[in-house]
């Protein structure tokens, strides 16, 4: 029972981690909390769904399509809502407010485009169950685990080894220095936002598979969880986002298993508020990143 819940928790947590990675990438490079990330995630879910049902694409092509859609939305958001703010000195709250605007815009757009009712992926994957030593793992769970861990590993590798990945890290470290070193920071910023949004779009499809229900309002709920993980792991910390996501997933599954299921959505922020009391810089954040002075 315990192990079964743990596996369920890790599956859920890996999707949270994927969402939180998007937040943390953007925060790392731009010092912005992208409040619209949850809605980009939700759009990814719907695009994936449409590709899988209306166009009969395989789940992997649908995932790819959702990631492309996420990237496009990310690009548009960067151009329309973030870049205009960089032209002049504004308060650090301005991009936060601007992306809140994007978030409610996208949510409302989704309500018009896709309707308010919950929709679901075809259940062919969910039906398949594998039994390993008394533990039940569904095909969906395996796909989710494989894809999210695959994406996380690929991202780490890409950031560490490739030229572009290195320039992203350099920009995250210090944007002026990166500029002096000849990094095209404008390009890096656009790429980071697109990459983060692509991850968000992909996570949308995976969560759609896991919960078997997607609706326009899920952007807010899941976005909040990603935010919780972002703070949990320490702003801008990639390892923190991964571990924080897993922890939150596990915590939620156990809160459901042990009888406080209706409070499930409050677990994330209960976590945060507790953490802010104890360790404002997040579990993995260093002292310099902390919110307190």
């Amino acid at each position: 029972m315990f192990l079964q819940q743990l596996i369920n928790g890790i599956t859920l947590g890996s999707t949270y981690a994927l969402i939180a990675l998007g937040y943390t990438l953007i925060f790392g490079v731009l010092n912005i909390v992208n409040m619209a990330h949850g809605e980009i995630f939700m759009f990814g879910a719907f695009i994936g769904l449409i590709l899988a049902t209306k166009f009969n694409m395989s789940i992997f092509s649908a995932l790819l399509g959702a990631m492309v859609a996420g990237a496009v939305l990310g690009y548009l958001m960067e151009r329309l809502a973030l870049r205009p703010l960089r032209r002049r000195k504004v308060s650090e709250l301005a991009p936060l407010i601007s992306t809140i605007g994007v978030s409610i815009f996208l949510e409302s757009l989704a309500l018009r485009l896709f309707g308010p009712q919950a929709q679901s992926f075809p259940s062919i994957y969910a039906a398949q169950l594998f039994e390993v030593g008394g533990l039940k793992i569904s095909a969906v769970q395996i796909i989710i685990l494989a894809i999210s861990f695959g994406l996380m590993v690929a991202l780490r590798f890409w950031l560490a080894k490739t030229r572009l990945g290195k320039s992203i890290r350099a920009t995250a470290e210090n944007i002026e220095t990166a500029n002096l070193l000849g990094v095209d920071t404008q390009k890096v910023i656009v790429l980071t936002v697109m990459l983060a949004s692509a991850l968000g779009g992909g996570a949308g499809v995976l969560v759609g598979l896991a919960f078997n229900a997607i609706e326009p309002t899920m952007g807010i709920t899941m976005g909040f969880k990603g935010l919780a993980v972002l703070i949990l792991g320490g702003l801008g910390n990639i390892t923190g986002a991964m571990v924080g996501g897993l922890l939150l997933g596990i915590a939620e599954i156990f809160s459901v298993a042990y009888g406080v299921s209706s409070y499930r959505d409050a677990v994330a922020f209960g976590f945060i508020i507790l953490l802010l009391f104890l360790r404002p810089q997040g579990i993995f954040g260093s002292k310099e990143q902390q919110g307190g002075r």
Binding site: V33, S91, E92, L93, L96, F224, L227, A228, L230, I231, L235, S262, Y263, D265, A266, A268, F269, G270, I272, I273, L276, F277, P280, G291, G292, R293
Partner: peptide, 23 residues
């Protein structure tokens, strides 16, 4: 605890607080 936080942290923490109250 939250007024110790600056800018973004405070905004998110208070947003989270609202969410907890709602739930």
């Amino acid at each position: 605890p939250t007024t110790r936080l600056r800018g973004i942290y405070l905004a998110i923490a208070t947003l989270g607080f609202g969410e907890v109250v709602r739930v």
